[in-house]
């Protein structure tokens, strides 16, 4: 069951990622990237890393990609310019998708549908939950964590400073 789900999500992830790269309509790319993130999150869930998985959706799919979409819309890269290219790329991404799905099916068949190496036994109790993660973040990795936060703040202030003529 897990392995079937894994191959399904993995092939969808690869397929949608290819779509993102090959397709020239930026809006479609953004939507497919969101879909790819959702599949990635599903893979995390299969690994029982629920917190990372939900953050993947919450932060990347939910917040960052909305801003991407926002920017793409505001830049007005509309379908008018993108459509002819879309038609040309049509075959490419379709071929790619079919290829990926086919390869995955091949891999499935050659492995005889056997289960992936079970990871449930390897992981500690409380793995993927928030408490152990938070404990690590705020004790062992406090300095890198705070440095990253500072870096992000600096980047944010820098962006505002560069973008706004008068503050």
């Amino acid at each position: 069951m897990t392995s079937i789900l894994f191959y399904m999500f993995a092939s969808l992830l690869i397929g949608s990622s290819l779509f993102v790269v090959l397709n020239r309509n930026p809006i479609y790319s953004v939507v497919m990237l969101v879909f790819a993130f959702a599949n990635l999150a599903a893979l995390y869930f299969l690994l029982e890393a629920y917190f990372i998985g939900i953050l993947q959706i919450l932060v990347y799919a939910g917040a960052i990609m909305v801003l991407f979409l926002f920017v793409v819309m505001l830049l007005n890269v509309g379908p008018d310019r993108a459509r002819p290219q879309w038609a040309a790329m049509d075959r490419w991404w379709f071929g790619g998708m079919v290829g990926v799905v086919g390869l995955t099916l091949l891999a499935l068949v050659t492995r005889g549908m056997g289960p992936l190496r079970s990871s449930a036994a390897d992981i500690d109790d409380g793995f993927g939950e928030i408490a152990p993660l938070a404990t690590d973040l705020f004790s062992r990795y406090l300095l890198p964590f705070e440095t990253a936060a500072l870096l992000l703040t600096v980047a944010l202030i820098g962006t505002v400073f560069l973008a706004k003529r008068r503050i």
Binding site: V34, A38, Y50, F51, I54, L58, G62, L69, I130
Partner: peptide, 24 residues
């Protein structure tokens, strides 16, 4: 779910796409 609250937040943030994409 052991991430129950975040689950709801994540899903509502995905729901934004419906509105944005409908608009576009």
């Amino acid at each position: 779910l052991n991430i129950g609250l975040l689950y709801i937040l994540a899903l509502t943030s995905v729901g934004v796409y419906g509105i944005v994409l409908a608009g576009w």
